[in-house]
Simulated scan of single mutants.
Amino acid sequence: MSAPEPTMSHAGAPVGGLLVLVDPVARRLDGESVRIAKDVLSAGAAAKICLPESLEEFARALARRGHRRPVIVGDDQALVRAVGLLHRRRELADASLALVPVGAAPSLSLARALGVPVGAVAGARAVLDGVVRSRDLLIDDSDGVVLGGLRIAGAGAAPVGAAGRAGPPGSASASGAVAGLAVARAAAPRAPGRPAAPSVWSACRSLVRTLVRPPVGRGAPAVQRLRLRVEVDGVLVSDVDQAVADVAVAARDGLVEVVVRMVDAGPAVIGRGLSVTVSGADFRYRADHADTGPVRRRTWTLRPAAWGLTLPR
């Protein structure tokens, strides 16, 4: 049974007030922006501030929101987490969400794409004065959610999540050695009028170059060539006989739009429908700027106007 819609105040917030959920990561990274957001929201509406210390506490607080409107103070992943939790509880249609973006710039790209103003003050004022707008949602066959879009990178693209992987043996220690030597060189005392001894520094640089030099006989890593079967509403868009450069999936104008680019020259293949299935060799994909996989098969289905997000008027 759906909960009754709360009465709205003149400021646009429900009479039941706001449940302000501050993501633990946001508190650690930018406590000042969190404080500003809490002050602005508390000054403009009846706000209950919740400071969960773990994902479990975050989920419990969201489930016990009552008639309060949930406001997430955090980054893209905090918003995706809240939408996913409400979807799995089958309460997404009854709880419009708001977001005050707090985090590093790369972690707020989804918020910007959705139209949420970035910045503690602008974001909090949009929560108080904005309006709820319906947003489409992609649901995958493991009950995961995609708010923005997703991409499967194939040939010629850097591996998904490569930035967070360890490099070849010795590379991390070599990088640390470079930084350490630079700091040591800058901090070393120098007698007036006497230049630093170039021979010592040159020897150090030679040692570091030896540490980071790639092993002899090894070439560049082989280019990944994905061979995937892509279907839209059961209709074949591309098959495993062609190597895929990348696949992009997003909800547009009430449909799922799929753009498949092949390794070989030629125009992109575009399909539109209500669902898309990708299968083939193990592949990774990036959804809402988070990496997932590897998987061998995944289906995404469109849920039109599945959730509400507060945006500026």
Rank of each mutant, 00 (worst) to 15 (best):
V212P: 01
A251H: 08
G156H: 05
S109Q: 15
P168K: 10
S134Y: 00
R64K: 14
A251G: 11
R89P: 02
A158I: 11
I36F: 00
S175R: 14
L150M: 08
R90M: 00
L228Y: 00
T310I: 15
G167S: 10
A155N: 04
A11Y: 01
S134L: 08
A188E: 14
D140N: 06
T310W: 09
I139Y: 00
V34A: 05
P106S: 02
A245G: 01
V127P: 07
D239W: 03
D129T: 13
A177R: 15
A203R: 14
P267K: 04
A61D: 11
C50V: 15
G74L: 06
L29W: 05
D76L: 11
G148M: 02
P304H: 09
P101G: 00
A82E: 14
L226A: 03
E91Y: 13
V276G: 05
R27G: 12
P24H: 05
G180K: 15
A268K: 08
A26D: 06
G164K: 07
P294M: 06
L114V: 04
V178H: 12
P198W: 06
S54A: 08
C204F: 11
G130K: 01
D288F: 03
L18I: 00
A174D: 13
P159T: 10
D241G: 09
V208K: 09
H10F: 11
S173P: 01
R213T: 00
R69H: 01
G266M: 03
G167W: 10
A120H: 11
P6T: 03
E57S: 03
G266K: 02
V183M: 11
H67V: 06
V183W: 13
V247D: 01
Q224V: 13
R81P: 10
